[in-house]
């Protein structure tokens, strides 16, 4: 394949299986942390107390899962790097989360749209990961699958409720879907890391989960009386560390203290 210059002109270098595993675990951790960080912004701002609690609960699940995955990554790396080093000492280009997850919360419907698309994929992915050939990863997945199942159910129920609620909520929900859609397609890309992990039966290719995802999403959309955009273009870059403008602000806020006081222990 000949080289074509552009926004994402990063050539893939050959990597070892250990490096691929580290990358794979880190991207799952980054997804969890960045989404958890975003959802935690909802705390004290929810539409009703019960849902404020539910949202915080999910943020806790995601950040909790991020910790387990970063701890695993630290073990793989094996050079004394800690879970907090990964979260607090890396810059935007080292974060490999899906671009979808760093998008701002917007209103309740915007957040729900983001969650439905991600939670549904995450459910199918973690279901597979419970059988990972890597015991650590399988263990984390087995622990997480229960809460991830709940997340997928919760966000789908909200989408249905808002889509099939009032005229206003239907319009809002439809617009949320249309607006967020350009960030969804990236989740089904395959690259060297995923390929290697799939071959080793450690990870799973999200592309192979696309059909299951699509059929579940179609079902939710139908119940919600909403329609999916037909646009097939999707922005990519997250897994390569090429992000939207939002991630820089997330990190500036999240990493402020360890950066301002590099000698301090918290």
């Amino acid at each position: 394949m000949s080289f074509k210059g552009g926004w994402l002109n990063i050539t893939e270098q050959k990597i070892s299986e250990k490096e691929a595993l580290l990358q794979y675990v880190l991207r799952l951790a980054d997804d969890a942390l960045i989404l958890g960080q975003r959802l935690s912004e909802w705390c004290s701002k929810g539409p009703v107390l019960e849902q404020d609690i539910a949202m915080s609960n999910m943020a806790l699940d995601h950040i909790g899962r991020a910790r387990l995955l970063y701890q695993m990554a630290a073990e793989i790396k094996g050079d004394g790097t800690t879970e907090d080093d990964f979260a607090y000492k890396r810059d935007t280009n080292e974060f490999k989360n899906f671009l979808l997850l760093e998008q701002p919360n917007g209103h309740w419907g915007d957040t729900i749209a983001k969650l439905v698309f991600y939670d549904t994929l995450n459910y199918f992915l973690f279901e597979k990961l419970t059988e990972s050939a890597n015991e650590n990863l399988a263990g984390i997945a087995q622990k997480a699958i229960k809460e991830i199942t709940y997340h997928a159910q919760w966000s789908a129920e909200w989408m249905i409720r808002l889509g099939d609620g009032t005229e206003e909520s239907k319009q809002k929900m439809q617009k949320s879907i249309d607006d967020i859609w350009m960030w969804v397609g990236e989740m089904f890309e395959t690259d060297q890391v995923e390929e290697m992990m799939a071959v080793a039966s450690i990870g799973y290719k999200t592309a192979d989960l696309k059909d299951a995802w699509q059929s579940k999403i179609n079902q939710v959309m139908e119940m919600a009386t909403l329609t999916l955009p037909t646009d097939t273009w999707a922005q990519t870059g997250g897994r390569k560390g090429v992000h939207s403008e939002h991630l820089g602000y997330i990190l500036a806020e999240m990493q402020f203290l360890p950066r301002a006081y590099p000698d301090a222990k918290w």
């Binding site: 806790l60 910790r67 907090d84 918290w266």
Partner: peptide, 10 residues
């Protein structure tokens, strides 16, 4: 969002 460690954030 500004807690200085993942543990303290949780």
């Amino acid at each position: 969002t500004r807690a200085p460690s993942l543990r303290s954030k949780l």
